[in-house]
Design a protein around this nucleic acid. Sequence first.
RNA 1: GGCCCUGUCGUCUAGUGGCCUAGGACGGAGCCCUCUCACGGCUCAAACCCGGGUUCGAAUCCCGGCAGGGUCACCA
Length: 484
Amino acid sequence: MMPRVRFAPSPTGYLHIGGARTALFNWLYARKNGGVFVLRIEDTDQERSTPESVQAILQGLQWLGIDWDEGPGVGGPFPPYTQMEKIGRYTQVAEMLISEGKAYRDYSTEEELTAARKAFAESKGLKEGDDFRKAGFKYRSPWRDATPTPEQLQTTAVVRFKMPDREGKFGFDDMVQKRIDKPFDDFDDFVLLRKDGIPLYNFSCVVDDHDMEINLVARGAEHVNSTFPQLMLYEALGWSPPAFAHMPLILGPDREKLSKRRHPEADVMLHRANGILPNALLNFIARLGWGHGNDELFSVAQLKELFDFTAVGKTNGVWNPEKLSSINAHWIKTSDPKAIAEAVLPFLHAAGVPEAVVDAKLEKAVMGFRERSKTLVEMAMKVKPYYTRGVTIEGEAAAKHLGLEGKQMLGRIRETLLGVTTWRAADLDPIVKVISEATGAKMGAIAQPLRVAVTGGTVSPGIGDTLELLGREEAMRRIDAALS
RNA sequence: GGCCCUGUCGUCUAGUGGCCUAGGACGGAGCCCUCUCACGGCUCAAACCCGGGUUCGAAUCCCGGCAGGGUCACCA
């Protein structure tokens, strides 16, 4: 059977890391198994959903390189892919359930419900300010088995699912969590449709997954508990449920579920701004919860080949910025330099080098700094001085390497450099050694004054590469400036 | 609090009864390489939550504690 999986974010903000990983695993699974990856927008929370968030999520996925086969922008055989555009469908399904006695209109007011919840909580000894959910309140609406009068039918009501009264437990086999069971008496008559006719998650999710012929629902483990009412809904509707895979959560440094509220690193685009490569982020989040033997580094192509839900663990993972950084460093130094040049370009522009373009010089700069940069931001900062005219020399570096002796040496180097005909690293590198042999000076006593003169500091790639990158004209200009 | 899930170095993990003197990676310490900084190479420190069973033998199976997380809405 061809897998049909989906990622169904609710557009209440940027794409967050947990969502990105859910999308990634679904996408990898579809790509590996020749399946279809569906993107669905769950915007039934009218309070918090915004069109800007939809765009932010789409852009986040695009940046990561996660493409969808059906959904916003691309369409598909089961439209619409945005829940608010198919309200009529949910109403229709709800009506069907009501007519079959599997759901009912509840005319209780919100105030009555709140009061009942509060009274129950207080009877359990909870006080004002406590979390009333702890009381284990289950609402038994007086309308559960009542027949509404014609007048009532004219007024609005929520629609509740009539949870069957049964003994014992029921459960399901999860591809990640294995068997999970729960006692029946744990469940409540949950709300299908709000008073305004807009469906709630547990309902719209089931209707859509069915309508879109989703056969594997892979989502975060925070949803395992909602799987039970959803399963009851499938049964009541006579629909066959999909398979499930509930992935472990990603935790913040404080060990709590990574949330937009408390954890800035939850924002996918923050990592882009920080100079993280998309494939590095993908590599990192894939390893949070999923593993393949002792391997750590995976290209997207390898991920597509190796990923499997059976290798996803059950333990939550803590966000580890150092590991991300190290994985990013790996992909910076091993990716095609031209691709890195393209990636670093916007950062270079932002750093104040608007004239930079992807050319031979930038690629050379990338080669010079790719082993020295953990992020694109860092690389841009390091590359920038090679694009300016002249350079400011750090006081400490000058004091250490451009004293009387240093300047004398620099003068000698200058004379030698004047005779160089081809300004290439291969020709420039040996000069340090030649002078060392001629004068008896240590290589460091030669390279460092030169390095400080042309870069302004004590740190740079090999001296030959540094000079070549600068170009003859600029290098000589800086040497002259240091000498004067 | 009820219910559900989890518990191997600080972190991510390998490990599915003997291959474990518990392996890898990040981070940490040190050494080597070296014109600087990096990269790279090598070495070291660092873990089976606790207690009972089962077994000739347990990180691996069972039970009980403890700890952590999730969830209990007219949010998703």
